[in-house]
Structures are given as C-alpha cells and as structure tokens.
C-alpha cells in the first residue's frame, strides 16, 4: 500500500522531463493498480453485467486524475482521484442510462417527475407520497420503483446545468464545517453553490423549500443537489 507521499513522489517523477516513456507507463500502472479498490468502491452497487465496463471507465477517470493532479494542493491523490473516477462513471452512466433503467421505468420516472414538478410549481412545497400517488397513473409498487430509480439518477445529475448558479460563499458560514478535518478536503472540492447548500441545510438547518426560495432554485433541484452532495462527501470520506 503506497502512502500519499509515495504517490506524490511517483507523480512528480512522472512529470519530470528526464523520465523515460517506459518508466512513465510503469509508474501509471503502479498507481492504477494501487487504486483499483477505489474504483471497485464506486461500482459495486451496479449491475454485475456491466462490471468490467465500469472498471474500464473508472480506470479512464483514474488516468485523468494522474494527468491532472496538482501535488502542491493540500489534498490526497485518493480524494482527487475519487472525484475524477466518479465524474467519468457519471458521464458513462448518464449516456448509457438504459443499461440501468428500463424503458418502462424511464417512462414511469418521467410521469413522476412531471407530476412532482407541477405540484411544486403550483404549491411551492414538495408533494406528500399520497399527493403524488393521486396525481400519477401508476400502481403503488411502480411508484416506489420509480422513486428509487429517481434516486439512482441523482448519481448522474451532478452536472445538472439547472443547478449551476453563481453564488458567493461566505467563509464565516462554513467555519464550523471546517472543524471536521477529515472531510475538509472533500468540502473544499465542492462547488461554491454546493458548499452554500450544504451549509444552509445541515448547519443553518433550513428546509429544502427555504433554500430553494433563497437561492432562486426550484425545490426539486435543491433536493437532487443535496442527495448528490451527501453521496459525494460520503464517497470521498469512505474512499480516501
């Protein structure tokens, strides 16, 4: 098991103009081999039938991390690599959603999202389960499945352009977030908007509707974003 310092040294050697091409390949192989567990961490929830594909996609993300990692930044390579791997998997799964979600499920998911959005637009709050159930033409079992699939889709919504709003972040609001040293690297890597949402929900303990109103977003986007942030930080904490 390589230490974070040893990985940094390998990456520095990789970038040296004196390093020969065979040595570059050798170093990349060592780092990729060393971080296979990190890739497996992200993909073990998915369909075993696409496991090998996902390992390859994760490896592409890992290689991108090796190329882009800045050793001078106070973040472990594993944390940075986790983000690159997840980003690559996210793109793959979004572009290949039919692998995970059947056509019927996609249609059901659309019905649920449409009904939810209509309700939120009309009443400015999230519908309860029974309110949603009365507005979609689905059996209770199909509705549960669709809601579950909707959560799986959170994974692919990390780059949702709808949520890319430029929000200034006050450092004061996150001072106490930074007390948690173990998750600080993960928080630092969040976008300003995500840090703001994280602080508003879990520190200021505002409801999702209040956050949506304050940030000028819709509640569904806030809900999706919060799920993505929580998963993102947990993955980084567990995977680092």
């Amino acid at each position: 098991m390589l230490s974070a310092g040893a990985v940094n040294n390998l990456i520095l050697e990789l970038r040296s103009p004196d390093t020969t091409e065979p040595r570059v390949d050798q170093i990349k192989s060592v780092i990729v081999e060393e971080h296979q567990g990190l890739i497996r961490h992200f993909i073990h929830f998915y369909d075993p039938q696409i496991y090998e594909d996902l390992v390859q996609v994760g490896t592409v993300g890992l290689l991108a991390a090796i190329d882009k990692f800045d050793v001078n930044r106070n973040v472990a390579f594993g944390t940075y690599a986790a983000i690159q791997i997840r980003s690559e998997l996210s793109h793959f799964l979004r572009d290949n959603r039919t692998i995970r979600i059947s056509r019927t499920m996609q249609e059901n998911l659309k019905k649920v999202k449409d009904a939810q959005e209509k309700f939120v637009n009309e009443y400015s709050v999230q519908p309860s389960f029974s309110e949603l159930e009365s507005r979609v033409d689905l059996s209770r079992s199909d509705l549960f499945d669709a809601l579950q699939a909707n959560q799986s889709a959170y994974f692919t919504s990390l780059n949702d352009p709808e949520t890319h709003v430029d929000i200034a972040t006050s450092q004061d609001e996150f001072e106490f977030v930074e007390e948690w040293n173990s998750i600080l690297p993960a928080i630092e890597l969040l976008s300003p908007l995500d840090r703001r949402i994280l602080g508003m929900r879990f520190i200021e303990q505002k409801k999702q509707g209040e956050i949506a109103q304050e940030l000028g977003m819709n509640s569904m986007a806030v809900s999706r974003r919060l799920n993505a942030i929580v998963k993102e930080i947990r993955s980084e904490v567990d995977g680092a």
Binding site: P127, S128, F129, F144, L147, Q148, Q151, G209, S219, S223
Partner: peptide, 23 residues
Amino acid sequence: RQIAMVVGAKADLPLDCLDEGQL
C-alpha cells in the same frame, strides 16, 4: 433505504422528508 422509503410513504411524508428518512 428501501424499507425506510416504504414506511415513510405509509407515514405520507412529503418527498423531501421521504429522502431524509432514507438518509
């Protein structure tokens, strides 16, 4: 998480609370 969703639905929680019940 799945059981939390079903029991949360029985409680007729709003969808954001349903998410938080699972979380």
